[in-house]
Nucleic acid binder design. Structure first.
Lengths: 115, 115
DNA sequence: TCCATTGTACGAAGACCTTCGTAGTTTGAC
DNA sequence: GTCAAACTACGAAGGTCTTCGTACAATGGA
């Protein structure tokens, strides 16, 4: 059976999330790509780290996911050998209304423009 | 007479402005503070670097203003001994609709919350 | 002309960031 | 029990960021 492990993963509480940390987390192209990927999943759906192919080593991937988690942008949970990720949309929207969508829109606009 | 000097200052063209650079520029509390300050000026009004007191040395101040300029967030122009700054609102709004205001709103919300 | 004001250039220190490889842990399947 | 898959921990290299002090340049006013 695939179950959630007891291995602990530190997440900031909603009220501990800081705008500066969120902006810094999203200012890296690789991390923005992860967020873009997660943003198109159904709400409450989640993806393992391995689902998003980043052209870097596994340890670098781990690093970037951790930055996103510690900034409060994503939540992570172990399921079996996988570590599932999803956007903390509710928390971000509650703290910073429209911020996530506006940044994703800006990213989409830029990608369209530079295509 | 107070005139605009010929001293050159490099600014990215509108189409050279990158979302990642903007987010990175705004992810620093000191730089976000500068942008907050400039955002409440009347449109097309401008402020010298010295108008915003940051608790750091002059050279550090110069550095942060330069990061904002090179990211395309502000424009700078010499007037006499002063260097005047203003937000590149039109350019940012054209490229990334609502981004600047949404980030400023998020900043205001966070400051209210943590007050 | 001389000076105060405003900001720059440069070099350096120390912190932090991104990346990697290697070795290891945890889990579920066989 | 053994194995493969997924991910981590650690340490290190190389780069960038933030900060400073000192010395300097440009400007406008007395």
């Amino acid at each position: 059976m695939t179950s959630t492990s007891a291995r602990p993963l530190e997440h900031p509480q909603r009220e501990e999330i800081r705008l500066e940390a969120v902006l810094h987390a999203l200012s890296d192209p690789m991390r923005l790509r992860v967020v873009r990927y997660l943003s198109v999943l159904d709400d409450h759906d989640e993806a393992p780290c391995s689902a998003i192919e980043l052209a870097v080593s596994k340890s670098t991937t781990t690093h970037h996911f951790r930055v996103l988690r510690e900034a409060g942008v994503i939540s992570q949970i172990y399921r079996g050998t996988a570590k599932m990720n999803k956007l903390r949309r509710d928390d971000l929207d509650a703290l910073f209304p429209r911020l996530l969508d506006t940044i994703l829109d800006a990213d989409a606009a830029q990608r369209r423009r530079l295509a």
